Amino acid sequence: MSDFVNIKIDGKEIRAKKGETILRIAGENNIYIPILCYAPIFPAQANCRLCLVEIKNQRGLKTACSTKVEEGMEILTETDNIKKTRNTNLKLLFVNHIGKCPTCIRKDRCELKNLTIKYKVYISDFKGKQLDIPVDDSGVVVFDLNKCIKCRRCIFACKTYGSDVLTLKNKGFNTVIATKNGKKLKDSGCIGCKQCAEVCPVGAIYINR
């Protein structure tokens, strides 16, 4: 049995390794698909819903980060339906995100901001209730979770490289990243690896200087 499958992405014929995701195969073939919650070293989360693709003869949009390639797949990455849904999802990510862009430490490297520019998304179209979370600057990194988009990269970074002290707490609108023991970062058991700050896409976590 072959270890490869034949697929098409945007009409391009590709011989892809079986078991790989659409996102990985697209990247290997210089086909861009936007991501926010995904990082290659962590499990696929499919939280941000930005890596959406259409697959011929399959209903609905699929997340490229979590969908594995299969023989004969014909995948599209830029249909009108994808563009409309992706832009709505980008706006929804900004609804509860307090955009302090001019003063943000990641103002020139913010992945969320850069995607809104790339796709010409006017974030003022959506505005919702915002959380008011005290900034925690007690540790080696600063937690300004009013900027958090709940991508969960920090949780996986902490679990993989740190002391596994971060988790999601509450539900729905009130969902927040928090320490497992409910204390400030300096009292959480954090070992100071700073990897949560390295992977944060929006400047909600940054190195305390």
Rank of each mutant, 00 (worst) to 15 (best):
A46L: 08
V165Y: 10
C110E: 08
R153D: 03
N146P: 09
R109F: 10
D144V: 01
G99R: 13
N47T: 04
R152C: 08
T167P: 00
K120C: 06
K56M: 07
A64W: 02
E111F: 05
R59Y: 05
P102L: 10
F94R: 12
D132W: 00
G60K: 09
E71G: 03
K171A: 01
I98E: 14
T103I: 11
E54P: 06
V121N: 14
I98D: 12
E70P: 03
N96P: 02
K84G: 06
D164F: 04
A46S: 15
N89K: 15
N96T: 07
N170Q: 11
D108Q: 15
E74F: 05
K68R: 12
Q45E: 12
C151L: 04
R86W: 07
E111T: 07
L61W: 03
I75H: 09
T85V: 02
H97T: 06
D125V: 07
C154H: 04
T77C: 02
V141S: 11
F42K: 12
K100R: 11
C110H: 01
D144N: 15
I155W: 00
F42E: 09
D144A: 09
T63A: 10
V135Y: 13
G60F: 06
V140G: 11
C148R: 08
Y122I: 03
L115H: 05
P134A: 05
I105D: 09
A157H: 14
C51T: 06
D132C: 01
G72I: 00
F126A: 15
R86C: 03
I98H: 12
F42S: 07
C110K: 09
C158V: 04
R109L: 08
Y161R: 14
S163G: 04
